[in-house]
Design a protein around this nucleic acid. Sequence first.
DNA 1: AAGGGTACTATACTTACGTATGTGTATTGT
DNA 2: ACAATACACATACGTAAGTATAGTACCCTT
Lengths: 254, 254
Amino acid sequence: MELNKPLPTRQREVLSLIVSFTEEHGYPPTLADLAGCLGLKNRMTVHQHVAALKKKGLVHWEPKLNRSLRVLPEGLQVLGLRPEQVGSLEAEESPDELLPQARKADRVQSADLRAVGKDKIVAFPQTSQPGIPYAGAIAAGTPIDAALESKEYLEVESRYGESGCFALKVKGESMIEDGIFDGDFVIVKPNPSPNNGDMVVALLEDGSATLKRFFKEKGGYRLQPANSSMEPIFVDAASGLTIQGTVVGLFRKM
Amino acid sequence: MELNKPLPTRQREVLSLIVSFTEEHGYPPTLADLAGCLGLKNRMTVHQHVAALKKKGLVHWEPKLNRSLRVLPEGLQVLGLRPEQVGSLEAEESPDELLPQARKADRVQSADLRAVGKDKIVAFPQTSQPGIPYAGAIAAGTPIDAALESKEYLEVESRYGESGCFALKVKGESMIEDGIFDGDFVIVKPNPSPNNGDMVVALLEDGSATLKRFFKEKGGYRLQPANSSMEPIFVDAASGLTIQGTVVGLFRKM
DNA sequence: AAGGGTACTATACTTACGTATGTGTATTGT
DNA sequence: ACAATACACATACGTAAGTATAGTACCCTT
């Protein structure tokens, strides 16, 4: 079986060290450099580790070419780094020893877990994000490794956050047949005039808000759930139906 | 007496070549590399030129250290380039005035390191999106206007983009009963070891990728679609099943 | 008990790379 | 005419750096 194996500790350390060494010195390390930083007595050990990294497609390394070592985007991803963060002389911890680097990666991971386990909507300070790397269509064969070099990013917040959109958490099953489940978040764009068939957030007379599809009919409006066990709501044109916006996106955490 | 002498043609060419070579290859050139690019038959000629450049303080060049050649800011200035335009990997852009104050401070701090090592400064865009305003649960009455004052934000990219996650576009209907439709984006976290019942991106022997729920069973694995009209896939433990990651989020554009 | 992956060491190469030394030719400007 | 500078080439040498081969040891899982 070939389940995604975790990168061996030492290889991850080497990978991380290549990044920090290159950042610090402005040129890539030699095997001897790496060995020295790792406290190894022999270059061959590093040679083996780097060879493994190359085989896994995480680094670029031309045979017999001095200092040609380079960490590929895939490698940065393994370390939890973004390409934009590398190459800048940013606040990094001492690159000399390498254990802190390894722990740094662990820290990122645990931070992620903490966020996942936490309440769904959290506002915590964050550094800039261009987006989520987009790796291609899932049925298109073997996309991951090759596609992650892509510069495409799935942009969510930048697309919706800036145009007055807001998020709502969905309760209930009224739109289940449209693939919107209880607990999902819909991204709503304030919209004065929805089109027929748009999914809208409607505010009813009684003050309750509901998520339905909007249809204009003779003498009023029909709010149609996507759940065959539920009945549509008919609203008279004269009564107070307020459309708060149309649904332009959906987000679900698992 | 020592007024600005114009840089000799050939030296300027060498200087420019160092920049472009480094950008293109990701590592600095050797003297032989430069000689080759310049059509010279001998490394010594380049050696002289580079030595002259070093003497003029335009490049950093450590004696006997392979590929330690680097163009200093002064050199970039001579070429009419701005330091921000020169990136090691690919990041660039963001002129000085857009940098937040904090980042400028970081630069001052890195001035030490510059003397020791590098001077390449790559600024990256700071779009700083806090997220999508979260307005509450949709069934909770009349939330919108009041809730928009809320300081809560639905964070998407910051949560997933940083931890090595990537996005895949879903093709097909195999997970339709789990509310994942054709055209949706799943956010995948690279995961070495999925748990039973996790939704995973699996790479099958034939090279195709598929989105299924993962179950470990005696003697192998079951990849279960969420579509009653489709059959589960059984994979023998010995054969090549690669799990590329588990699905941790879903995003749909409408 | 056997096999495989990880991790490290040691010796001994071959090649890549920087450098010293020397020669030569134009083109400048005084 | 002379020196100074820019530019180029060749030979040769020493070291920096990558690599082949071989061996040890510690875990795992089967």
